[in-house]
């Protein structure tokens, strides 16, 4: 049975016919829309490599059926930069060497952006570690990841202060 669904992906509305309700958001993005920045590390919600934002919230796209998310607004790693202008989190990951192999990186970055929007961790390194613990990194770039998040958080706090001043 075919199902028509529509999603907003990185700001653009996409309507399509889903011929199979088994397709997860992750496989939809990777194998059908060829947005391969989002990675599959475990496919079981245990590694965080597939983290995307759905309606502004970070989730594991491997455990989300696409069909159930009809109408959702999706942000993936491909939609984070503005042209050549990197998102502060992206730039901070480079500056603080918050990755090695880079495979978990899109998920880490999406998770970090989602975490900042949740506003639970602030600039407390311990809360950041806890709130980023859903993203495994086998290379062991955790120290750089925490530094990158702190740096980006600082920059974003500063710019929002400037805006409100």
């Amino acid at each position: 049975m075919n199902h028509s669904i529509s999603l907003t992906v990185n700001g653009a509305r996409r309507d399509f016919v889903l011929d199979d309700p088994r397709v997860t958001l992750l496989d939809l993005l990777r194998e059908r829309l060829h947005l391969t920045g989002t990675k599959k590390g475990c496919d079981r919600g245990q590694c965080g490599a597939c983290t995307i934002l759905v309606d502004g919230k970070r989730i594991n796209s491997c455990l989300a059926l696409a069909i159930s998310h009809d109408g959702a607004d999706i942000l993936t790693i491909e939609g984070v930069a503005r042209g050549d202008q990197l998102h502060p989190v992206q730039a901070a990951f480079i500056a603080h060497d918050g990755f090695q192999c880079g495979f978990c990186t899109p998920g880490q970055i999406m998770s970090a952006i989602g975490m900042m929007q949740e506003a639970q961790a602030g600039n407390d390194p311990e809360r950041i570690r806890e709130c980023m613990s859903g993203n495994l990194c086998r290379c062991g770039a955790y120290a750089g990841i925490v530094d990158a998040v702190l740096d980006a958080q600082g920059q974003m706090d500063e710019s929002s202060q400037r805006r409100s001043a």
């Binding site: 993936t76 790693i77 491909e78 060497d97």
Partner: peptide, 15 residues
């Protein structure tokens, strides 16, 4: 910093 950094943080590094 890593010369492949931009590719990796934008999801354009192709595995």
């Amino acid at each position: 910093t890593r010369r492949d950094g931009i590719l990796k943080v934008t999801g354009r590094a192709t595995y």
